[in-house]
Design a protein around this nucleic acid. Sequence first.
RNA 1: GCCCCCGUAGUUCAACGGAUAGAACGGCUCACUCCUAACGAGCUAAUCGAGGUUCAAUUCCUCGCGAGGGCACCA
Length: 615
Amino acid sequence: MIEDEIRAAVKNAAAEDDIAISDHDIKLEHPALAEHGDFATNLAFLLAKKLRRQPMEIARSIARGISSPLIAKTEVAAPGFINLWLSDDFLKKETADIITAGCRYGAPQKKNQRVLVEHTQINPNKEPHIGHLRNACIGDALMKLYHFAAYDAKALYYHNDVGQQIASILLAEKKAFVKSDGFPTTIAWASAAYTDIEKRMEEDESLKKEKEKIQIAIAAQDTKEAARAEKLTLEILHETLDVLAKLNISYDLIVRESDILKGKLWEQTFELLKTKSAFYRATDGEKKDCWLIKMPNAEDKIIVRSNGVPTYAGNDIANHLWKFGILPDFRYEKIDWKTQPEPLYMTVSAGGEARRDFSHADAIVNVIDQTQTYPQESVMESLRVLGFTKEADHYHHVNYGFVYLSRKTAEQLGMPVEDGAMQVKISGRKGTTISIQTFLEKMKDTLREKYGEFSSLAAVTSGAIKFELLKYNTYQDVVFDLDAALDIHGMSGPYVQYAATRAKSILAKASEKYRSEKAAVISMLGTDALPESEKTIIRTLYRFPEVVTASLNDFAPHYLCLYLFELSQTWNSFYNENRIIGSEREAERIMLTRSVIQILENGLGLLGIEAPEKM
RNA sequence: GCCCCCGUAGUUCAACGGAUAGAACGGCUCACUCCUAACGAGCUAAUCGAGGUUCAAUUCCUCGCGAGGGCACCA
């Protein structure tokens, strides 16, 4: 990459000056102001103390020695920055590279590592809402980034089919206080029935007891309750995945919690843990007879209840030991639900086939909301306690914040809004929840009202919602505003999509002779100096690979959103001021247009967003 | 009480310890016979407070204030 070459040039210059530095010392940044160059380094400041010399003097002396065909100009700026300008040759070559590399441009170096990305994992008693969708979008974007970097990445969906909320739903089904007819989907019914039965149980002890019986029956497996739980939760899961499939979000493997139980993964985990002193049994007090894991920075976490049943954290430790290939593998069965892209696998406890590609992970990424940081840390700590420190270090909890709805959006969706509230929290209990389906329909209606029916309506809706959910720091709570998401004027998916569409439209009109890759490369490498307006675009284009790498390293898809928006702005501004077809630099500008389209497509693709031909 | 996260224009968000804190929306202007105007240009306005570390702090440390979350034998 360009940065490595610049580092080498700086290093050589320093060496000439008898200053030994490693690549690691040279921090490069893109200055905020164009007048400070394309790259800047603060190297002189870092060396000043060590060398007992003035930063300015060091900077001058190093800058003098910098020589590279990539660098056109070097300047020293007070109080000691070294500023570098890229050469036209580099900018031209890079633009040509974008066209030759095509959809692979920006891909980080190949890593032969397996990453398991667990995301979405919605409990089957909840209708998927926009908060779940944020999770799915983050997970899916990370998956695409990993695939782009040629990791062996798999998307896992953890299917919780034995929890106590399943027992509640089974009870609700048996009692039929809420009839299933009248609900469009099983999940819509389950969600409503669950809320209803939970309320009733608060007032009725006998219902509670009945539920506990069901729960024990489910846990025992091999019972009719367990069979019903399996069937019903799979039906709900199927519906959930259908909704996500409509947004092109898909998975490779469904891990069923029931299979963790059937495979006795917990029992094996328990035996391992018991050999460690940081895992202990409380002998008195409130937590008498519970097994806990010592937490260095928090209260010790209960892993096994006093009745001997593991908590969720316990099963999750087992789950992760499996992921790293420490515990024996599951069996797998291919499932075909027609609506998801194949192949989609599911764990099974018996039958099926053996596969080695779903465990033995080099790294784990769990997209799980912020409230679960403590249990996640307990899983990580357990790995450490068991001596799997390398695995614990490669365990990443990508936490993300709540999605609130803006007051206006909540009102548009007909949700109850408290007086004076600027934002509305999604809560099943308060009745302020809204399904992804309903949300998407509302967005489509809004677009139809504004622009009428058009071919890319679905792509724009999907792009709008994904971009809006991905454009923020994951760990921040965000306020979702429907109009902002759809606003072509703002920092939105449609804005970026529109920029791509307009560029594509130019290409479609361009003369045939400019369309080939060869023509592109030749024209870009011409000898004329690049006009400033074109340079501005290329200066944004060549940063794409850096942004991809940073997004991946920081688990931060929002870097890509910010970048794509900036590129779109730069492009729109250029488009507005400069004629492309028919200009004296027609060939070069058409090729520039091609590069812009390529980057927008590559970048949007990583976010799971289409760049439509027409809008 | 302990732990975590957050506090930046009126609003929603950026900013790897760097140079004049960026955008977007809103408001106020301008522009629009021209490759998709669903575009573009300009103006407006902000780092919660007090110390400290540093050549340099929105960023790191300490304290305070404010908001959210966690500290379940729920998941």
